[in-house]
């Protein structure tokens, strides 16, 4: 039972790495908190649902489409809103308020458009029957979702560490003003990161029907709490810390569900409090050096 829970935790954790990755990338580059992150995920889930039901497009084909559309939407959204937020005296607080409002609008519009009912895509479209790993059986939909999440994490890593754009992105993450002073087009880099952040959330949404049972317009709030837990465990502003955060969260959740199921919903909050008390910078965080 423990082995099953641990391996399930890794698969689930990989998925939650993807869920948190976009939020952390946006925070790392722009120092803004996107409280509409869960709602972008929800929109991605509904996009996958409609692409499957109207065009018969399976999630694996829908994922790249949804990603490109989200990036394309993120680009103008960045220029419309983010520079204004960044000019404020306290951009982090203002972004929380702004994106909270945006989240409410998105949920209301989605409710009007899609109704309030649960929606999902049959698990068989990602493979029929269970998949056997190390002597344990897991739903094929879980394994595929976990594998896609791992692939997305690898691609983000390559983008950040193996491309010129990634190098400039990391430079902006370290110090926005210094990056600007060295001639980096900070807004272009940030706009791409913002779009990629939304794209990652939307791709996570494509696989949400398989990992979360079903999707509905109001699911974003719960996703936000989990995403924040994952990125705080890993390290705020460090996208790769998100992977560790996701796996720690996934394993802890599955072990709790196996042995103390009634208490499982306390887990995000317990982990958040624990990490903030013991290691406020997160597991991969570095102590800040003040000049």
């Amino acid at each position: 039972m423990l082995a099953y829970a641990l391996l399930a935790g890794v698969i689930f954790g990989l998925y939650f790495s993807l869920v948190g990755m976009g939020l952390n990338l946006v925070f790392g580059v722009m120092r803004i908190v996107n409280l509409a992150h869960g709602d972008v995920l929800m929109l991605g889930a509904f996009a996958a649902f409609w692409l499957f039901n109207l065009l018969g497009l399976p999630p694996l084909a829908a994922a790249p489409i949804v990603f490109v559309v989200a990036v394309a939407i993120g680009w103008p959204l960045y220029f419309l809103f983010v520079p204004r937020l960044l000019r404020a005296r306290d951009p982090e607080m203002l972004s929380i308020i702004f994106f909270f409002g945006l989240s409410q609008v998105v949920v209301a519009l989605a409710t009007i458009a899609f109704g309030t009912n649960e929606r999902s895509i049959p698990g068989r479209v990602l493979g029929s029957g269970p998949v056997h790993i190390l002597g344990q059986s897991y739903p094929a939909a879980w394994v595929v979702s976990g594998a896609v999440s791992a692939a997305a994490v690898v691609l983000v890593t390559l983008y950040l560490y193996r491309t010129r754009l990634g190098t400039t992105t990391r430079a902006v993450m370290v110090h926005r003003e210094e990056a600007l002073a060295t001639g980096i087009d900070v807004h272009r880099v940030s706009a791409i990161a913002f779009g990629v952040g939304l794209g990652l959330a939307a791709v996570a949404g494509v696989f949400a029907p398989f990992m979360m049972g079903s999707v509905r317009p109001a699911m974003g709030a719960d996703i936000n709490i989990t995403s924040f837990t994952v990125i705080v465990i890993g390290s705020l502003g460090n996208p790769l810390g998100t992977v560790l955060g996701g796996i720690v969260y996934g394993i802890a959740l599955m072990v709790m569900q196996s042995y103390f199921s009634s208490w499982a919903n306390l887990l995000p909050y317990l982990l958040l409090i624990g990490i903030l008390l013991i290691r406020p910078t997160g597991l991969l965080g570095r102590t800040l050096r003040h000049a």
Partner: peptide, 20 residues
């Protein structure tokens, strides 16, 4: 004989535990 939070959306591990 166990409870789960009402907002639970993932049951795979629980199903495996019950099957055991």
């Amino acid at each position: 004989d166990n409870g789960v939070p009402t907002n639970t959306t993932s049951y795979t591990v629980t199903i495996n535990t019950i099957a055991a």
